[in-house]
Amino acid sequence: MEEKKKRPAIPENVKRELWIKSGGRCEFRGCNKYLYKDGVTKQPRNLANIAHIVSWTPTGPRGNQNSEKLATDISNLMLTCSEHNNLIDDPRYVEMYPVELLQQYKREHEERIYRVTGMGQEYGVRIIKMFSKIQGQVSIIGDKAVSEAIMPYYPLESDIIIDLTQVEDVTSAQKQIERAVDLHIKSNSNEESYSVFIMAKIPYACYLGYALGNKVKSVSHQFFRDTQDWKWRDGEFGHFYVSKPK
């Protein structure tokens, strides 16, 4: 009986390089799961799979005559979570993930990690989140959506939160906004830059803009309901026009 071939061992230096290039995150497009922490216990744990783009055997998923040569080549390896490792090799779906597409996933992910980790401190911005009840409801401003909206900048460690959910009138809201701005922003001698995200009543939002003034380096972001995100888009304001009286 023919002995079953074993998957070639991937050298430790190749593993280390792949972990560094991937940032320890799943390289499947849209996943980005951090692979060295348990999602429930938060304890350190290696959850990564090293997936082959071209299978290490010619008869495997996307395998070909070069399979053996590519078995331990870093250009042919992706760091993935177990879910997406199984997905791309599943016989039912393997045709949906050809070599060229997986190579594109890997290239995009590793270029993004290289670019983001190469940013200097000047790319750090402080996030201001302000929210209140709107028609009795409170909307959440998610951290992931914020991080995506401010790219290529990155959020500094602690956010400035202005919680107006218990405020019932404009005067009380103004006082709370003023306290937050005086405490966290105007007293800051480091002259930080700010990105502002608001899910609050319009008068509250207007007053925050007034309180910040034109001396604070800040950029405001709008929530777009059609795409459910905060990303500004080119040409978004083509529907505005100026009408001058005769």
Score class of each variant (00 low, 15 high):
residue 88 I to G: 09
residue 93 Y to H: 12
residue 97 Y to W: 10
residue 84 H to C: 03
residue 89 D to K: 08
residue 96 M to H: 05
residue 98 P to C: 09
residue 99 V to S: 03
residue 106 K to N: 05
residue 105 Y to V: 08
residue 104 Q to F: 01
residue 106 K to C: 06
residue 81 C to Y: 04
residue 86 N to P: 02
residue 92 R to S: 11
residue 90 D to N: 15
residue 108 E to V: 05
residue 81 C to H: 10
residue 97 Y to H: 02
residue 102 L to I: 00
residue 96 M to P: 03
residue 84 H to R: 09
residue 103 Q to I: 01
residue 112 R to N: 08
residue 90 D to R: 11
residue 93 Y to W: 14
residue 81 C to S: 06
residue 92 R to V: 09
residue 98 P to S: 07
residue 103 Q to K: 11
residue 113 I to G: 01
residue 88 I to N: 11
residue 105 Y to E: 04
residue 96 M to T: 01
residue 91 P to M: 01
residue 88 I to W: 14
residue 84 H to Q: 06
residue 101 L to V: 07
residue 95 E to K: 15
residue 82 S to M: 06
residue 86 N to C: 05
residue 113 I to K: 09
residue 106 K to W: 14
residue 105 Y to H: 15
residue 112 R to E: 15
residue 102 L to F: 00
residue 107 R to Y: 04
residue 85 N to Q: 10
residue 108 E to Q: 13
residue 112 R to I: 14
residue 101 L to H: 00
residue 103 Q to G: 04
residue 88 I to H: 14
residue 97 Y to C: 04
residue 80 T to L: 15
residue 84 H to M: 03
residue 81 C to Q: 06
residue 96 M to N: 11
residue 93 Y to M: 08
residue 90 D to E: 09
residue 98 P to K: 00
residue 111 E to M: 14
residue 86 N to T: 07
residue 89 D to I: 03
residue 91 P to T: 00
residue 99 V to D: 06
residue 97 Y to L: 02
residue 83 E to V: 06
residue 90 D to H: 13
residue 108 E to I: 08
residue 81 C to A: 09
residue 86 N to W: 12
residue 105 Y to C: 05
residue 89 D to R: 08
residue 94 V to G: 05
residue 84 H to I: 00
residue 88 I to L: 12
residue 91 P to G: 04
residue 108 E to W: 06
residue 109 H to G: 09
residue 115 R to T: 15
residue 98 P to G: 00
residue 84 H to D: 05
residue 86 N to D: 11
residue 95 E to T: 00
residue 83 E to D: 11
residue 102 L to R: 08
residue 114 Y to E: 14
residue 113 I to D: 01
residue 113 I to N: 02
residue 89 D to M: 04
residue 107 R to H: 13
residue 114 Y to T: 15
residue 114 Y to C: 09
residue 104 Q to W: 04
residue 84 H to N: 12
residue 114 Y to M: 14
residue 113 I to P: 00
residue 82 S to E: 04
residue 107 R to I: 00
residue 80 T to D: 06
residue 81 C to L: 02
residue 110 E to C: 03
residue 106 K to F: 08
residue 80 T to C: 09
residue 106 K to V: 03
residue 100 E to R: 04
residue 83 E to F: 01
residue 109 H to C: 05
residue 80 T to P: 05
residue 98 P to I: 00
residue 98 P to A: 00
residue 102 L to H: 11
residue 86 N to S: 13
residue 92 R to I: 04
residue 93 Y to E: 10
residue 95 E to Q: 13
residue 110 E to W: 12
residue 111 E to S: 15
residue 106 K to D: 01
residue 101 L to T: 00
residue 89 D to T: 07
residue 108 E to L: 08
residue 80 T to K: 09
residue 89 D to A: 04
residue 106 K to T: 00
residue 103 Q to F: 02
residue 109 H to N: 11
residue 105 Y to L: 06
residue 97 Y to K: 05
residue 115 R to W: 14
residue 93 Y to T: 11
residue 111 E to N: 14
